[in-house]
């Protein structure tokens, strides 16, 4: 079980809404938002996914002073480029793992207890859920694993419950999620 704190800020909500192409002024205009049913700025429904910003060990964010596995002078900063490595094992291993970093995202479910608002300080508690396997036609063996995250406010009340399902594949697939 892992725990982290997520301070919700209006500017972050605005940037997130822009990124998902949502022009609804309730995500950025306080004067407009006051006249709506929620009565103030709220976050778009998938916003809690941005809690990744606040997870200290999140591996899909470059960290200061640490090598990053994306490209720089070579196609990957932490692997020998494919073909250059003596036995190419790392590169092959990485290619086989689907998205090359943590597998692919298969499902995501949110249950909303209330809207997320600027000023909320959410505590995230993450625990593993079920794991199961399936045989895919093109991707080989598929291993699914579930993660459940609870977002609670400073009074301990549940705000959002999230359930994500990730999948790891044996082979790179282009059209099957």
């Amino acid at each position: 079980m892992a725990e982290a704190r997520f301070s919700v800020e209006a500017s972050h909500i605005m940037m997130f809404a822009r990124a998902v192409g949502d022009a609804n002024p309730i995500y950025c205009d306080e004067a407009h938002a006051r006249e709506t049913e929620p009565g103030g700025i709220i976050a778009p429904p998938t916003f809690v996914q941005a809690s990744a910003q606040f997870q200290p060990d999140y591996r899909l964010r470059p960290k200061i002073g640490e090598p990053w596995f994306g490209s720089g002078a070579t196609p990957s900063g932490t692997l020998m480029p494919p073909g250059d490595a003596p036995d190419d094992t790392d590169a092959k291993q990485e290619k086989k793992s689907g998205a090359a970093a943590g597998g692919l995202h298969a499902e995501q479910h949110f249950h909303y207890h209330r809207s997320v608002r600027p000023g909320d300080v959410l505590t995230m508690t993450t625990r593993p859920g079920k794991t199961w396997e399936k045989q895919g036609k093109r991707a080989g063996k598929l291993v699914f694993s579930e993660t459940i995250t609870e977002y609670r406010d400073s009074t301990g009340e549940l705000v959002v419950t999230a359930r994500g399902v990730g999948v790891r594949t044996e082979r790179v697939i282009e059209q099957e999620g």
Binding site: R18, Q49, A52, A99, A100, V172
Partner: peptide
């Protein structure tokens, strides 16, 4: 833009060189 807002910088989404040459 979504990578920046969400914090998920996985290079398969943001880095053409990595996505094609490393991840295939």
């Amino acid at each position: 833009q979504y990578a920046g807002a969400s914090g998920d910088y996985n290079p398969v989404h943001t880095d053409e060189v990595f996505a094609t040459k490393v991840a295939g």
